[in-house]
């Protein structure tokens, strides 16, 4: 676990705040003085997980650096809904890059800060952010280069499993069997192919960079602790945040956090952190559930639950989740241990 959970204070550290805890033990998001790095008025869909995840992460980064953050932002949902010219929701220095080069732009900003002597004192830090399309597909070469050079950038990927703002096309982070506009639910194997998968956090770890973590919008305390931890390192750092997308996933707008929680509880999405290529902690499953509980509420998997349920496909997805549980040691354990 990335942070010391409060064992029992009614809601412990599960809720955003907790009136029974001293203010310094509450989350950044609980504070009336939080930065609101991405402000109201943005044009994200109702219940957008990415808008939420971005505020969680960047507010935590701002808190950890006394408000000294510059962000580079790949093209994608986050950029489109936050900054339709001439207005922006960002309340931080923010630079829009191309779709594929945000890691390189961030590298350049970090280099410029170094040249100008601004990277040490005051310690302005650089964050690059993008969706799964801009990270795992289009921007992957730049990202790997940034890792390999160990540039002083925290790269945050908001993974919603597809190109959502252009109409829900498949990306290399789209999960198997999911229906998208380019992987229709037709033919003998409807939806996205199973393929080999491409789990970028594991690839990031393979670069042995100082810090790699995954998180979801359902575990705020864990997410904030990881951003804070990432800011304790210099060099390349990577955080991959699962952000459910009501539009692309076909889920009710109020269920965004619930879907992220189900992804974690079923083992579909492993939540862990690694330093220098080695896993340091995992967020264990609290109440184990079968993957069906995660799949069934999503319209992108509706074809699995038709008149004749696709039992073999569901079993295959269960196997992948079970592998995650084994591989990362996510088994449920007694609370507080």
């Amino acid at each position: 676990m990335s942070f010391q959970p409060v064992k029992f204070y009614q809601t412990g550290t599960f809720t955003v705040g907790n009136r029974l805890l001293p203010p310094e033990e509450r989350s950044v998001q609980a504070s009336a003085k939080r930065f609101n790095s991405i402000n109201s008025g943005h044009r994200a869909c109702q219940g957008c997980g990415e808008a939420l995840g971005a505020r969680y992460a960047i507010d935590a980064a701002m808190e950890a650096t006394d408000g000294q953050v510059i962000a580079a932002n790949a093209t994608g949902c986050l950029e489109v809904f936050s900054t339709p010219y001439p207005e922006t929701s960002w309340q931080i220095p923010w630079i829009h890059s191309l779709f594929g080069n945000t890691a390189a732009v961030a590298t350049g900003i970090a280099a410029a800060l170094k040249v100008k002597g601004l990277s040490q004192n005051p310690k302005t830090r650089v964050v690059a952010q993008g969706g799964d399309g801009g990270t795992t597909d289009i921007g992957f070469g730049c990202l790997s280069g940034m890792f390999e050079r160990n540039d002083d950038v925290l790269y945050i990927c908001y993974d919603n499993g597809g190109y959502m703002n252009t109409g829900v096309q498949r990306s290399s982070a789209t999960p198997p069997a999911a229906r998208t506009a380019t992987t229709m639910a037709v033919g003998p194997e409807p939806g996205n192919v199973f393929g080999q998968g491409k789990f970028v956090p594991a690839i990031a770890m393979a670069h042995n960079i100082p810090y790699v973590a995954t998180a979801t919008v359902a575990d705020l305390r864990d997410l904030e602790a990881k951003v804070r931890r990432a800011m304790e390192f210099r060099g390349a750092r990577y955080i991959h945040i699962l952000v459910p997308c009501p539009l692309g996933w076909g889920t009710p707008s109020q269920d965004t956090i619930k879907m992220a929680r189900l992804a974690k509880e079923t083992g579909i999405f492993p939540v862990f952190e690694a330093e220098h290529g080695e896993i340091k902690s995992v967020l264990a499953i609290r109440r184990p559930l079968p993957v069906e509980d995660y799949l069934r509420p999503q319209k992108r998997y509706a074809h699995l639950f038709g008149k004749t349920p696709a039992l073999a496909t569901i079993a295959h997805i269960q196997e992948l989740a079970d592998r995650n549980i084994r591989k990362y040691g996510l088994q449920a354990r007694k609370e507080g241990h």
Partner: peptide, 21 residues
């Protein structure tokens, strides 16, 4: 309400105003 701050925290649109303890 027992002021757990959840509504305040989970709003993607910062549309919840925290009025204090």
């Amino acid at each position: 309400c027992f002021e757990c701050d959840n509504c305040y925290g989970v709003c993607p649109d910062n549309a919840v105003i925290k009025l204090g303890p």
